[in-house]
Each structure stands twice: as C-alpha cells, then as structure tokens.
Design a protein around this nucleic acid. Sequence first.
DNA 1: CGCACGATTGAACTTAGTCAACTGGCGTGG
DNA 2: CCACGCCAGTTGACTAAGTTCAATCGTGCG
Lengths: 249, 249
Amino acid sequence: MPKPHAKGVTPCKACPLRGLAIFENQNAEEVAFIQTFKVGEVSIDQGGPIYFEGEASPYLYTVLEGWAFRYKSLADGRRQIVNYALPGDFIGLQNSVSKTMECGVEALTDMRLCVFPREDLFNLFVAHPSLGFDLTWLAAREERFLDDNLLAVGRRTAMEKIAYLISHLFARARELNLVHDGKLDIPMTQQHLADTLGLSLVHLNKTLKKLRATGLVVLDGRSLIVRDEKALAAVAKIDTPRRERRPLI
Amino acid sequence: MPKPHAKGVTPCKACPLRGLAIFENQNAEEVAFIQTFKVGEVSIDQGGPIYFEGEASPYLYTVLEGWAFRYKSLADGRRQIVNYALPGDFIGLQNSVSKTMECGVEALTDMRLCVFPREDLFNLFVAHPSLGFDLTWLAAREERFLDDNLLAVGRRTAMEKIAYLISHLFARARELNLVHDGKLDIPMTQQHLADTLGLSLVHLNKTLKKLRATGLVVLDGRSLIVRDEKALAAVAKIDTPRRERRPLI
DNA sequence: CGCACGATTGAACTTAGTCAACTGGCGTGG
DNA sequence: CCACGCCAGTTGACTAAGTTCAATCGTGCG
C-alpha cells in the first residue's frame, strides 16, 4: 500500500491539469478545499499496484500523470480489464461501497497520484456540496464508460471491438493533450487490449493485423497513429462521440 | 415521456421498501427531505419505455414496484442489456452527465416509480449532504454491478455466464423478499438473458438446457427455483457474494 | 381457427480460442 | 563482447465454442 509523500508537492491551484480545456473552471474556494482534502502525492512505478483486488485501502486518488488500468479476475486467472485511468481521473470511488476493493488497479506507466483520505470523503460532501455533486458526476461518467465497454464486449465483433477501443482511447488521450503530431504513446501490450475486449491474445493479434491493413491505424510497439478517425469510428460502429467538460478533484 | 401523477401517493415515511432489512435506516429528517424531493409517482406498463436511448428526460426515478432493464444498442439492432433495475434502485443518474440518455430503460413488468425532478438534484446535495453521499454510494454500487457484468460477458463461458446471471438475480430478488418458498417469478424472456450475457438466443437456450440438466436450477416459463445456491455459484465461479445495507432514495 | 410470441431443436457454418513454434529486441551476467 | 533468457509480438494448424438459418411446437388470445 503506497504511502503519501510530503503534502502539497503540486499545489492544486497550480495543477497542470487545470489548464486543459476539458476540465471545468472551478472557483478558487473549491480548489482551496480540494487542497485541504489532499494529503499528499505518491509515485508508483510501472506495473506497480495501486489497489489490490479484494483488499482494503484508506486512500482515494486522482491521477496526475501516467496511465493505469482497473481489472477484475476469476480464480483461474482469466482477467477482465474494466477501464483505464488517465490523468484527471478519480479512482477508488468504485469501492467506497465496501471497505475491500472489488477490483484491482495497476499502473501501466510510472505514475504520479494525488492522495486523499477516504475517511474525509463524507466531510467533502458536507463542506462543499458542489464537490460532492461533482464526484457523483464523475461516478456517472465512469458508469457510462462501463456501459459502452459492455456493449462492445458483449455485442461487437473482434474487428469492431478493436476499432472501438482504439478510437475511444485516442479520443480520451487527445483531450488531455497526450497526442503530439497525430501520434500517441499508448502503454498497453496486446495482452491488455485482449483482456479489455474479452478476446484471446492470438485472435486480437490477428484481427489487429487486419485492421492495420485497412490503413486507418498505425500501431507499432507503443506508438499509435489514427489516420482517419471518422472512418475508424465507422468500422467500430460508434454513433456519437461525446465531448463535455468535466470536474477535476 | 411519462408524466407524474398526483403527489404523495405513497408517503416516503410509509414506503413499503423501508421495512426491508437491506435498506439503511435513514433518519426522519432525511426521509422528510426525500418526500419534498419527490414530485409524484408514475405507473408504466410492461414493455413501456422509461427512458428512450438518446433522448432527454427531466426526471429521475426510484423503482417502487416491478422490474426494468437498462440497455444500449448498435445501429443495426444488436442490443446489450447492461443491468436490471429492481425495487429500491435509483435510475437516471447514469445520464446526469449529459442531457441526453446514453442508454434506454424499459419496463419488464408493470411498474410503479417515484418521480424526482432532475433540476432539483443539485439542491439535494446542498440541503442534505448525507443524501448526496448516499447517491454517490448508489452510483458506486451500480458501477460494481457493471464491473461484474463486464467480467462475466468478457471472460466467462456460456455455462458460467448463465449460472452467474441466475445466481446474481436470485440473490438480488431475495433481498427484496421477492422469493417465496424458494420460487421467484422472473419476468425476462430468454432473449433478454441472451442480450445480457452477449450470447445468441439459440446458444443461450441450448446451454440453459444443459444447466437445467444439472438439477441446480429449475426454470420454466417465468418461474425460477434455485435448488443449490452454493453449487450454482461454484458453476458460475463466483468468489464472494456481498451483502451490505444500502441507502434508499 | 388463425395468429403471434416465446421456447426448442437440428444442421451447417463462422468466429474465436488453443497449442505450439518462431522472431526480434533488450538487458544481464559471464 | 557475446550468449542467454525473457518478453512481446507474430504466425500456422487445429479445435471448440458460439452463431445463423430454418423449422417446429405449444400456449394464449382475438
């Protein structure tokens, strides 16, 4: 279980994420409160655990930097990646329900996280109802991602699944200015992609090859270029991409 | 879009659901506030829409009576049922994010719903932070259901999927006292089950036949009996069933 | 009665999974 | 420096799981 560092390494009001257009403008008072809620920061190495599946944790986190994934698994090792966490995403709320984490979270890259004490969560709702509202909003957003993933895993073909996932991740990353000159560094292996989409590694690999052959996508090693987002979305049968500003806590 | 009836058909403090052991004891003040938040009740006929996929709605609901399902679909008609709503479940929050509903909700039986105005939602957080907290809690609970469903749809075999779904629904229904003499009336057709699990109707039917042959489950027409819940959970590879009290709004 | 709907079944077919081998890059230790 | 091993990616051959098509059955209902 990671321990928080010294407080205030990155002051909330100077948080680099706040400059991004997708995040709502929160007023100074709200940002100041978030600052008091934050007890520190932690660094996690690539591959390191943020939450263990089935164990308790007294902390909540906001991703400052890096990528993580949230997963559940069966006793025999089959694993399902349920969603990814990128900068600005709040993690740990999924488990405010019971003390023990129902799903694990693991760092895909080296990460930097803001740390919040779970025990202070209720006070946030009391002291700043608007932030409580924001948290619910974020939970609802996560729910929608899960709905989308469920539709993909349950009802799309392998080719559609891959196009969907790439399209989805590329759009999320671009909102965060992680795409430079049309190119994105994505940290996941093909095994991660397969585990996200409910496919076997081999089948994912072969279908990905077919998708590459269409020329819509260039994906070698950890670098992703989407040549035609519209056409990719069409392959994925994605109807309406949404883009709304969201709160940052 | 259903319109609310006269206010207060069922007074919140006399809500039949509050007597059930799974719901938390909320204090009189909270219940009184929920009463002011509630603008009325609606009845929905079996098969009727509660939310249309992709349309706006100014209302939020709590299920008083009956079953519903939440779904998303692709343009060509493929449908994924994402979760079910039973009495005590709060619906509509998933979409507080944008005005338009990302997923549809449809009544599986005749239903009775409490109606809340979406525009008053923020005020709930301000006036009663503890209820705001409860809503977030409920959203987190829904998220966990979705995580579980994702694991099932993505990584379980057809047999495991069916055992999982039956096990899951039976447990939820029993908490609500819907199981009488070990027997539960479940309103969904095999098509619904197939659309929940990401299976074809035919394959669901054949696999269900095999599951019946084990003797663990009796399912004919709309009546379900689970003869051995432990063994069924083992078939489903379910690790730890959770049972915690939850808020009711 | 005829019709609609849900459940059921068989047969042919397709998709995806499994097994196994091989590649290339990279880092480590001799 | 190079051999070795490890890991991610790639490929082919085979198998199994799940889908599609099509037909049938039973029940309830106008």
